[in-house]
Simulated assay, not measured.
Amino acid sequence: MSSYAWECTAGKELTWNILSLFTTSGMLFLEVSLIAFLLQGNYASGLEALTRTFAVSALIVGLDILLKAIYMFGLGIPLFIDSNEQQHHMKWSLWVVHRLVLTAVYGFILFMYHSKWRERLPARPAFYKYIVIMFTLNALALFACGLTVNGTDFGFWLYSTTIVCYHTFYLPLLYVTFLADFFQEDDLHLENVYYSEMKDAGFFDADWE
């Protein structure tokens, strides 16, 4: 429990709850935005797709924040503090539902990749790998929450491990999946431009006679 020493310090509970709420909501906003944008495929223009994506994401994340705020500040259930287990069952039941929804969404997208709707999704393998990773992570977290609801200590350890992995590797995963190729293509384009300019200037001309 040493990793929770700071948030369990007297007088820090409110600060920790607010910080954790907005941090997790920000991460969820990124997830929902990616899913909402991805599922639109090529059937919307750039501005239209972004507008629809942010509207859907704001609605879902707003409801998520409201529900968690009711649990924490209305019912007094410590969602992000693990030193108080008086509301153990209700707390972990909420996380079970939360992870069940995310697992179902990623599972549905995996199903789409193997169905007639595959053409609506990006054809690049990196997108498929991203969905597989997120489905696996959320399925593990769901399994861990189920174990914890039943009072299994291993479930709490497994859930904590998935949370640490999520917060540590999610942003690098986004970069590798969605941005790395873009920057590589941009660098390659610049190299081609420099090569063309040097060739036009005669730097590669040679007298073979």
Rank of each mutant, 00 (worst) to 15 (best):
A58F: 14
F73M: 07
L28P: 02
H89L: 12
N42T: 09
T103G: 09
Y106F: 15
R118L: 06
S115F: 08
A69F: 06
I70R: 04
V32E: 02
F80D: 10
N84W: 08
F37Q: 03
T103I: 01
R99C: 08
V56M: 02
L102G: 01
G41C: 12
L63G: 12
I60A: 11
T53Y: 09
F111Q: 02
V32T: 13
G76Q: 08
A36V: 10
Y113W: 10
I81P: 00
Q40D: 08
V56S: 03
S115Y: 12
R118T: 15
I35D: 11
V32P: 03
V96H: 15
L75S: 05
L100P: 09
R118A: 15
L94W: 15
I35K: 01
F37A: 06
S83G: 13
T51F: 13
I109S: 06
F111K: 03
F80R: 14
L21A: 08
Q87R: 13
R99F: 15
W92Q: 07
S115T: 05
I35S: 06
S57E: 06
A104P: 00
I81V: 01
Q86C: 04
L38R: 02
I70S: 01
S93I: 12
V32S: 03
H88C: 05
V101R: 03
I70D: 00
S33F: 12
I35H: 05
Q86S: 13
S93N: 15
G46P: 04
I70A: 10
I81K: 02
V105T: 06
A55P: 00
K116R: 14
P78V: 11
T51A: 09
F108T: 14
L30D: 05
S93L: 15
G76W: 12
N84G: 03
I70P: 00
I70E: 09
Y106G: 05
F111Y: 14
M90R: 15
S45D: 13
L50P: 01
A69R: 01
S25R: 13
L100I: 02
I109H: 02
I81G: 03
L66Q: 04
D64A: 14
D64W: 10
G26D: 13
T23H: 09
K68N: 07
H98W: 11
L47H: 07
I81H: 00
V56W: 12
L66T: 10
I77E: 08
L102D: 00
G107Q: 01
L79T: 03
W95D: 05
L59H: 13
V97K: 06
S83I: 05
V97W: 13
F29W: 15
G41T: 08
Y71F: 15
L50V: 11
H114F: 12
